[in-house]
Amino acid sequence: MEKSVIGPAFVISVFAAIALFLSGKIYARGKALRVRGVRASVLCVNESRNGNGQVFLLARHVLDGGAELQLDVGPFRYPPARIGGTFDVVYDPNDPRTVETPEKVPDGRAALISIGVCALVLLLGLVLIALSV
């Protein structure tokens, strides 16, 4: 093979590795919510907007022992509640920063497909590099 393949194969391999890493993180986050996620009704105590008009909600949930849990939920284009209203979430009790509304909890199929495609592209890029050396 020609040496001119190494540059593009290296660039493709780097992008595939980054996409593979990010897809793995997305899959792991969704799996945490699917496997050990707790569904709860929460009270919206504050809302904020970013420059793109997306809304983020600060929600409060009181656990069985009386401890209070603060959850940052979003972004939303159309939030499920306003301040003082309640809405449902699924959160990871091991990491309450991992929280989504029930309809946004991913089933994992798209992330698994992405992982497979990225792994295949990365493998192809590495084979091309190895054959070009």
Rank of each mutant, 00 (worst) to 15 (best):
41 S>D: 12
69 L>P: 07
62 V>P: 04
74 G>S: 13
41 S>N: 10
76 F>E: 13
49 R>M: 02
53 G>N: 05
27 Y>A: 15
20 L>I: 02
29 R>L: 15
41 S>Q: 08
52 N>T: 00
57 L>Y: 03
21 F>H: 14
37 G>W: 01
64 D>F: 14
42 V>A: 05
31 K>I: 01
73 V>C: 06
73 V>Q: 07
35 V>M: 04
26 I>M: 14
28 A>F: 06
56 F>A: 05
59 A>W: 09
75 P>L: 09
71 L>E: 05
46 N>P: 03
44 C>L: 04
70 Q>L: 08
47 E>A: 04
61 H>V: 12
53 G>S: 01
66 G>Q: 10
76 F>S: 00
17 A>Q: 13
50 N>Q: 01
55 V>H: 15
72 D>L: 10
57 L>A: 12
58 L>Q: 15
33 L>N: 04
57 L>T: 06
29 R>H: 15
74 G>V: 03
22 L>V: 06
57 L>K: 01
75 P>G: 13
71 L>F: 01
70 Q>W: 05
36 R>A: 02
33 L>R: 04
38 V>H: 01
29 R>T: 15
24 G>M: 00
58 L>M: 14
57 L>I: 05
60 R>W: 02
27 Y>L: 02
71 L>T: 03
61 H>E: 14
52 N>D: 04
44 C>Q: 05
17 A>M: 13
40 A>R: 01
34 R>A: 07
20 L>C: 03
32 A>F: 01
21 F>R: 12
55 V>Y: 11
42 V>D: 04
69 L>E: 11
63 L>V: 06
41 S>W: 05
39 R>F: 00
64 D>L: 05
25 K>S: 14
47 E>V: 00
54 Q>R: 15
58 L>K: 03
76 F>C: 07
55 V>L: 15
63 L>W: 11
76 F>W: 05
48 S>T: 02
47 E>Y: 01
64 D>M: 11
31 K>G: 09
60 R>D: 12
40 A>W: 06
38 V>F: 06
36 R>Q: 09
74 G>F: 07
55 V>P: 04
25 K>D: 03
55 V>I: 13
52 N>Y: 01
40 A>F: 09
60 R>Q: 09
63 L>I: 05
42 V>N: 09
34 R>M: 03
67 A>V: 12
30 G>P: 05
52 N>S: 11
23 S>G: 13
54 Q>T: 12
44 C>P: 06
36 R>V: 08
29 R>G: 13
42 V>F: 02
67 A>W: 11
58 L>V: 10
